[in-house]
Nucleic acid binder design. Structure first.
Lengths: 186, 186
DNA sequence: ACCTGAACACCGTTCAAGT
DNA sequence: ACCTGAACACCGTTCAAGT
């Protein structure tokens, strides 16, 4: 007898992210998620394999929040916009965001972001053979900064300092990129 | 009656790091650490406040493993050597290393590393007022790459690819630094 | 001063049972 | 097909007690 389906995977992941955002990663338990959904903890196991799968699920969803930049902007403004969007996502989900370093970005949303960066780098003049590598490095830099910022490594510094840090980082990347294009390595 | 002291904080942290390295972060439990030390779990609480304190302790110890670079080398070689040392530390402690993003580097060892970078940046020609900021950015870049590498974000890529990635990253940082020095921001 | 034994609340996960 | 109840092994942590 097919019951009315109370929850599905998306609902589980949404509730999990909300719990983590509101009460921290330690408070993200199967019981807390279940309670928020009005269901017993065991009901979750039909929709996620186990807790690791649940964590992977919410982390993978993070990059789906990044809006694609306007297509007619110059490449450096596109990169800049995406960087700011990533920082904003990090701040919205401070305890979950650092987990992004733990798994390959393989969802549709993540691939979409990556494709946009590819195009911007192409427009910047990066050789086709180097585009994937440069994308990996730039995303590592931005992710690393955003993760450090929300995870607490810069706890001692003011928001103003971090904003200025990030602006300097952006400048370094763009000028580094420019000189890379001007004289590409052997 | 003063008993013979069986363990101390350093021994607890050493055993904890060993457990994490050998069996992963999930296997790092108070009971596993206690068993390795031949003691009951409750005995640990005299030497660490709680599990979070234990984690902080081993993470803080990580940067003490970085050897100071030879003092007579040119600045770029010093930075290069420290970067490689950090990558090596990450590979030795793959599950614990990413936690470095979560707390300010405040131990003696960490401060030592930072001072060395300050000096190298000074030698590179970075203005005194910018040295601290540039150090933050460079360490973010190196930490972010090393953490991504060991945490699994680049799981799909070969060691050779990652070595080449890192070489490119180093080049970008050095050239970015050079052009920053050539024309410092307003 | 340092460690242990017993105990508590909580956690992830399983399995058989209900509808 | 989807959810529940009962149960299990394990976890971090406390407290009073031992030496």
């Amino acid at each position: 007898m097919a019951r009315p389906r109370l929850i599905d995977r998306a609902a589980v992941l949404r509730a999990s992210l909300a719990v983590a955002d509101e009460r921290g990663l330690d408070a993200l338990t199967m019981q807390a998620v279940a309670e928020r959904l009005g269901v017993t903890p065991m009901a979750l196991y039909r929709h996620v394999e186990n807790k690791q799968d649940l964590l992977d699920g919410i982390v993978e969803g993070l990059l789906d929040e990044i809006p694609p930049p306007a297509d007619d902007q110059p490449w450096d403004e596109q990169l800049s916009a995406m960087g700011q969007a990533i920082r904003a996502t990090a701040r919205r989900h401070p305890t979950v965001f650092p987990l992004l370093l733990q798994l390959p970005a393989a969802t549709a949303g993540a691939r979409g972001v990556r494709e946009r960066v590819y195009r911007a780098l192409h427009d910047a003049g990066v050789a086709e053979a180097d585009v994937a590598r440069v994308e990996r490095l730039i995303s590592t830099i931005v992710l690393g900064f955003a993760a450090s910022e929300v995870a607490g490594r810069f706890r001692a510094h003011s928001r103003a300092t971090l904003d200025a840090d990030y602006a300097a980082l952006e400048r370094i990347v763009v000028t580094g990129l420019a000189s890379y294009v001007a004289s590409p390595p052997a």
